[in-house]
């Protein structure tokens, strides 16, 4: 029913090769009727400057988030979005985007909350597609709206809330994927994003620092399986059955790491704490660890 798995050797060594495709695979399958390509970017205008032919745009801010409550869209909102993008429940959705696929991974993760079965990331994202000189267009994509069923959002299996994280301290691994400066508390925000700040700096007690960027290569693609194993399994000591929670600042960089741990390394229980540091660092009376208290 869905599109075939990419036979690429690097992809096939991952735990779930059905979750990643190469640019070549996408070029070969872009017209497959079971495939819909979706672009999700940090810069909400980037799609309009040129996108992969036939790709639809999914705006992380306007499409996936509720516009009043800090939460994702509900079942009706998700079905409406999928329908408008011409996606059926059986569609193979290939996500790609700018900035190392942060928001593509985030959009994929949100679709996974609603149990959309066949979601995949384009390895290397927009950066690699463009670097290879593959076609881009500003032509508008028109897809026929579909009947997408109402499906409940599962907020338990791959999503963690602040209360879950509190209960998780000292019980399971927490992975802080922010930059070292954010982890140590020297930076109150990500470099270059001063507006997404918090009142307190530091990290959640017991969290280990594994910046998201370590999982990626300079061309935007994921590191091969053996290198990911060396980082997360050997160096960090994570195991297949660990109950892991990843967090960053607003949940997009940790979506990237969630994807790596879940789909590339095959860990069985990984949750993304989307409230992340913008919630934790502003919350009253939650524990915070800082290596060196300010003198």
């Amino acid at each position: 029913m869905g599109a075939p798995i990419d036979p690429d050797p690097k992809i096939n060594r991952y735990a779930h090769p059905e979750r990643v495709v190469t640019t070549q695979w996408l070029a070969d399958h872009a017209d497959d009727p079971s495939v819909v390509i979706a672009e999700s970017d940090e810069d909400v205008l980037l799609y309009e400057t040129g996108h992969i032919p036939g790709a639809v745009k999914i705006d992380w801010h306007a499409d996936l988030n509720d516009q009043i409550t800090r939460d994702y869209v509900d079942a009706e909102g998700f079905a409406r979005l999928m329908s408008a993008k011409g996606i059926t429940r059986d569609t193979t959705i290939i996500f790609y985007g700018d900035n190392f696929n942060w928001w593509a991974a985030y959009a994929l993760w949100v679709c996974s909350l609603f149990g959309h079965a066949d979601v995949r990331l384009l390895d290397g994202g927009r950066q690699r597609w463009v670097a290879e000189g593959r076609p881009m267009t500003t032509d508008a994509t028109h897809r026929t709206p579909t009947e997408y069923p109402l499906t409940p959002r599962d907020d338990v299996t791959i999503r963690a809330f602040k209360e879950d994280v509190l209960a998780h301290i000292s019980h399971g691994p927490l992975v802080d994927v922010r930059s070292p400066g954010e982890y140590s508390g020297e930076l109150m925000h990500m470099a270059d994003y001063p507006q997404e700040g918090a009142l307190r700096g530091g990290h959640i007690p017991t969290a280990r620092s594994v910046p998201w960027r370590r999982a990626a290569q300079d061309d935007g693609t994921f590191r091969p399986l053996d290198e990911l194993q060396a980082i997360y399994l050997e160096e960090q000591g994570l195991t297949q059955d660990d109950d892991v929670i990843a967090y960053c600042r607003i949940g997009e960089r940790s979506s990237h790491t969630w994807f790596v741990l879940t789909h590339l390394l095959g860990l069985s229980r990984v949750r993304n704490y989307d409230g992340s540091w913008v919630e934790w660092g502003n919350a009253v009376r939650v524990p915070i660890e800082r290596p060196d208290p300010i003198a």
């Binding site: 810069d43 909400v44 205008l45 980037l46 309009e48 400057t49 700018d98």
Partner: peptide, 8 residues
Amino acid sequence: PEAPTTRG
């Protein structure tokens, strides 16, 4: 050009 929002 890869930051069209800021350019705008």
